Deep mutational scan, measured.
Amino acid sequence: SKNWSEDDLQLLIKAVNLFPAGTNSRWEVIANYMNIHSSSGVKRTAKDVIGKA
Rank of each mutant, 00 (worst) to 15 (best):
S1V: 12
S1T: 11
S1K: 15
K2F: 06
K2Q: 05
N3F: 13
N3D: 14
N3E: 04
N3Y: 13
W4K: 02
W4S: 03
W4F: 10
S5Y: 02
S5D: 03
S5L: 03
S5P: 15
E6M: 05
E6A: 12
E6V: 10
D7K: 12
D7G: 13
D7R: 14
L9V: 11
L9M: 14
L9P: 02
L9A: 13
L9E: 14
Q10M: 06
Q10S: 09
Q10A: 08
L11W: 03
L11R: 04
L11H: 03
L12C: 03
L12G: 02
L12E: 00
L12F: 11
I13C: 09
I13Q: 15
I13F: 14
I13V: 13
K14G: 07
K14H: 12
K14M: 08
A15E: 00
A15D: 02
A15R: 00
N17P: 01
N17I: 05
L18H: 07
L18P: 02
L18R: 09
L18N: 10
F19M: 04
F19N: 02
F19L: 03
F19D: 00
F19H: 11
F19A: 04
P20R: 05
P20F: 00
A21T: 13
G22Y: 07
G22F: 04
G22E: 14
T23D: 09
T23A: 07
T23C: 06
T23Q: 09
N24P: 12
N24S: 12
N24F: 11
N24C: 09
N24D: 14
N24A: 15
S25V: 06
S25H: 12
S25K: 13
R26H: 01
R26E: 04
R26V: 00
W27C: 07
W27N: 04
E28M: 05
V29H: 11
V29G: 13
V29Q: 15
V29I: 10
I30G: 01
I30W: 01
I30D: 02
A31M: 03
A31P: 01
A31W: 01
A31L: 05
A31S: 09
N32H: 15
N32E: 14
N32K: 11
Y33K: 04
Y33H: 05
Y33F: 11
Y33C: 00
M34R: 00
M34L: 12
M34W: 03
M34C: 10
M34I: 13
M34F: 06
M34V: 14
M34A: 01
N35G: 03
N35P: 00
N35F: 02
I36E: 15
I36W: 10
I36L: 14
I36A: 14
I36V: 13
I36D: 14
S38P: 01
S38M: 02
S38F: 02
S38V: 02
S39M: 10
S39G: 14
S39Y: 06
S39D: 14
S39W: 09
S39A: 15
S39C: 11
S40R: 07
S40E: 06
G41P: 10
G41F: 15
G41T: 11
G41K: 14
V42I: 15
K43N: 13
K43V: 10
K43E: 11
K43F: 09
K43A: 10
K43T: 13
K43Q: 08
K43S: 09
T45S: 10
T45I: 06
A46W: 06
A46V: 13
A46D: 12
A46P: 11
K47Y: 08
K47A: 14
K47H: 09
K47E: 13
D48G: 04
D48A: 07
D48I: 00
D48H: 04
D48T: 04
D48W: 01
D48R: 02
V49E: 01
I50H: 09
I50D: 08
I50W: 11
I50E: 15
I50M: 15
G51P: 08
G51H: 08
G51C: 10
G51T: 12
G51A: 13
G51S: 13
G51W: 12
K52T: 08
K52G: 13
K52N: 06
K52P: 11
A53S: 13
A53L: 03
A53C: 08
A53Y: 03
